[in-house]
Simulated assay, not measured.
Amino acid sequence: MNGPVTAARLRIEGLSYGTGGRRLVDGADLTAAPGETVGLVGPNGSGKTTLLRCVYGTLRPTRGRALLDGDDLHTMTPKARARRVATVPQDGRTDFELTVREVVAMGRSPHKRFWEPDTAADEALAAAALERVGIAALAGRAFPSLSGGERQRALVARALVQRPSLLVLDEPTNHLDIRYQLDVLSLVRGSGTTNLLALHDLNLAAYYCDRIYVLQAGRIVASGTPREVLTAELLQTVYGVKAEVSTHPVTGATTIVYLPPSAC
Score class of each variant (00 low, 15 high):
R219E: 13
S223W: 03
G45R: 12
Y207P: 01
T75I: 04
Y213F: 15
T173A: 11
T254D: 03
E228Y: 04
Y207K: 13
C54N: 06
V229M: 07
I220G: 03
A7D: 08
C54I: 01
A206H: 03
G27F: 00
G18S: 14
L235K: 11
V250H: 13
A32F: 03
G14H: 13
T173G: 11
V250S: 13
G64T: 07
V238W: 10
A217W: 00
R83E: 02
E150D: 07
D72M: 05
G70E: 02
I256P: 05
S186Q: 14
S46N: 12
T31R: 09
T94M: 08
D201M: 04
L202P: 14
D210N: 08
L160D: 09
T58D: 12
E131G: 08
V88Y: 06
R81E: 04
L130N: 06
G21W: 02
A206Y: 04
G149N: 07
E116W: 05
A205I: 02
E131N: 07
A253W: 04
T77G: 15
R141G: 07
T37V: 15
P61S: 07
K79C: 11
L204W: 00
Y180N: 12
V214H: 10
R113Q: 09
L187G: 08
A243F: 03
Y258E: 11
A222W: 00
R101K: 10
P226S: 10
L98R: 00
G3D: 02
V103A: 07
P110N: 10
L30S: 07
T194P: 07
A263F: 13
T31I: 07
Q216W: 06
V168I: 15
E228K: 08
R83L: 01
L234N: 12
E228R: 13
G64I: 06
T254Y: 02
D210W: 00
L98W: 07
Q236E: 15
A157E: 05
V25W: 08
A157T: 04
T31W: 00
T62I: 10
E244K: 05
M76I: 00
P117K: 00
L138Y: 02
R219N: 03
T99Y: 09
V229D: 09
